[in-house]
């Protein structure tokens, strides 16, 4: 079946992503921020689906929305929120933050302006059934090295966390 109303869904999902990202940084209650982040991740999964990448969308939901964010929420639930909300924010880096955000935004605009040929204007529908296989062939073929380095980095982070959390090993 041919896709229907793609512009509508694209704008809807983009709006959801941006709106929830905005909520993440403006809510004072961290649990609400985390929930907004979950919504944003789900909307992103929708965008992946629209790019004919169902495997990436599924993994995004299972790993990010259903796995990592549960652990986020787990940690936040252990914090005494009422006291944390009354405390003044000690991290006064808004100037650096604004500068960094502006620089990144300028970079995006520049790439969009100059590199218009980089982005395909329309996408060829790919065979949905072989998507997983294509991802696997890319990961274990040309991008093998990057893939292994990423897994090594994760292993280092894991060992680091264990070392820091355990007093005696």
């Amino acid at each position: 079946m041919a896709p229907v109303a793609t512009p509508f869904f694209f704008y809807l999902l983009s709006l959801l992503t941006l709106g929830s990202a905005f909520l993440v940084i403006t809510r004072r209650n961290p649990v609400h921020s985390a929930l907004a982040l979950i919504l944003g991740l789900l909307a992103q999964a929708g965008l992946y689906l629209m790019l004919y990448a169902p495997f990436v969308a599924g993994v995004q939901i299972i790993l990010y929305a259903g796995g990592i964010m549960v652990l986020f929420l787990f940690v936040i639930m252990l914090v005494n929120l009422e006291r944390a909300q009354r405390e003044e924010q000690f991290n006064k880096q808004w100037l650096v933050g604004i500068l960094a955000a502006c620089a990144l935004g300028a970079l995006f605009v520049f790439v969009f302006w100059k590199g218009s040929g980089l982005f395909p204007t329309s996408l060829e529908p790919m065979a949905e059934a072989s998507n997983t296989q294509q991802v696997a062939e890319l990961l274990y073929g040309p991008y093998m090295f990057a893939f292994e380095i990423a897994s090594l980095l994760l292993l280092v982070a894991m060992i680091g966390a264990v070392v820091m959390a355990k007093k005696r090993i």
Binding site: P54, F55, G58, V59, I61, I62, G66, E128, A129, N131
Partner: peptide, 9 residues
């Protein structure tokens, strides 16, 4: 086509 993956999600 991705039925199982979506159910797990």
């Amino acid at each position: 086509n991705m039925g199982l993956l979506i159910i797990l999600g």
